[in-house]
Write a protein that binds this DNA or RNA. Structure first.
Lengths: 231, 231
DNA sequence: CGAACAATTGATCCTCATCAAACCTTGTGG
DNA sequence: CCACAAGGTTTGATGAGGATCAATTGTTCG
């Protein structure tokens, strides 16, 4: 119980919460720490908790019966995940949450959130705000996947990651820590294709690629690939 | 103003509304009728209204800069659409709504809904319920598009349509009224591929295909194609 | 130093998109 | 009532874009 309840205000859904509410969440919450590669929950588990990531990094993914995976979202500190189940008492998680690094999260019982939403309109409202954002992002990504070529999809994935997780290095490049496999799962392709595309971009001086790492040297160039109207 | 407010209770988000609330929606709502092919709103328009379809059939779609389209959802009577913008006063519609038949809808100002949500927790709650459903559907479709082959995606599209819009005919087949082009937009492929797949299925006796029409003769066979673990 | 894991690169193949042409179906107007 | 136009559908031929497989080359860490 080492976390300061006030920090929870950094969670977008809790931005309008009262101090008292935040204390409630922390009091009734459980801190869970897991190792890299381990799971917070699996697709299909009953959605008893929702989580706030306190440290580390995780991903939300879905897999089909034969095991192929797609990455729905990458989660960093102070982001909520597993919240879809919060609405419906019977719900199961529609995705699996796996840690990309050693991570800690605050688990909050979804019944608690549901009860609180009854009397705190701001909560439902802010949660809805978050959800509309997800819907729009998923709709766009769906369209991209259906209509755009791989190179552009990879560019788009990098741009999204830059906005969410990008770290500006001292040399002015934007550092992203992902394997080719992870990038592939985010853009709906294979690690081989990602590798080829990155190699090509490196030849053109747009990025620097390393082990579990991509550094964007010319963000503008990537944006151009993502947006360009060619054809 | 020919609609009976009580009919609005068939809208899932309004199922828990008071009679008084329903009357409010109808009083402040505007009935809009449009022809086949016309639009309720375009992607990017300011989201001033949300709509309840009263009669006809419409589709929600997104298009990319070069005009290729994907179909996000098909709308039938008593379904809500354009509701994402209801949450945020500044929002624009993330998709375009086009009538597939002559259609009528009740347009409700999103400010009205926002105001009402302040004091009626059931409204936010039920709307959230609807949204979690969308998110899950979009996530699944995204995964399908990324990992599954065309034939299976078309089968899945037919199954979804059966659940939502299927009409049981006297001969025990399930009738669906869609063009190859529409089916293609729903499964992320081209009308040519849809045509080929349907021809093949017809040869196998699974469906009957006609102009702007598909009749499913052996639902089980289609489900099998959609689920089958092969490889 | 070696094992484990990530990335690269080449060769090959397969699924679909694309283009083109012909064929149906439906509704309309002479 | 027929002919024709318009739009939907089918089918073949072709090719491109990536997936897949295999082999090799880094990189990191115990």
């Amino acid at each position: 119980m080492s976390i300061d309840p006030m920090n929870l205000r950094r969670v977008s859904v809790f931005q309008n919460a009262t101090d008292e509410d935040l204390r409630l969440f922390v009091q009734h919450g459980i801190e869970r720490s897991i190792e890299e590669g381990e799971f917070f929950f699996f697709q299909g588990d009953p959605a008893i908790y929702l989580y706030v990531l306190l440290s580390g990094r995780a991903k939300l993914m879905q897999s089909n019966p034969s095991g192929q995976q797609v990455n729905l979202r990458t989660i960093k500190e102070w982001q909520l995940f597993g919240a879809l189940g919060a609405v419906n008492p019977q719900a199961t998680y529609p995705a699996t949450a796996q840690a990309l690094e050693p991570s800690t999260a605050l688990a909050i019982e979804s019944t608690l959130l549901r009860e609180m939403m009854q009397t705190r309109p701001y909560l439902s409202f802010d949660l809805m705000q978050l959800m509309t954002g997800y819907i729009q992002e998923m709709q766009s990504r769906y369209r991209e996947l259906a209509t755009e070529k791989v190179e552009r999809r990879i560019a788009r994935a990098l741009i999204r990651l830059t906005a969410q997780m990008g770290v500006r290095s001292s040399e002015g490049t934007i550092e992203l820590a992902f394997t080719r496999q992870e990038l592939a799962e985010m853009s709906g392709t294979t690690l081989y294709t990602v590798s080829r595309v990155l190699s090509e971009w490196e030849r053109r001086g747009l990025v620097e690629a390393g082990r579990e790492r991509v550094a964007i040297r010319k963000p503008h160039g990537i944006v151009q690939i993502a947006e360009e109207l060619e054809n």
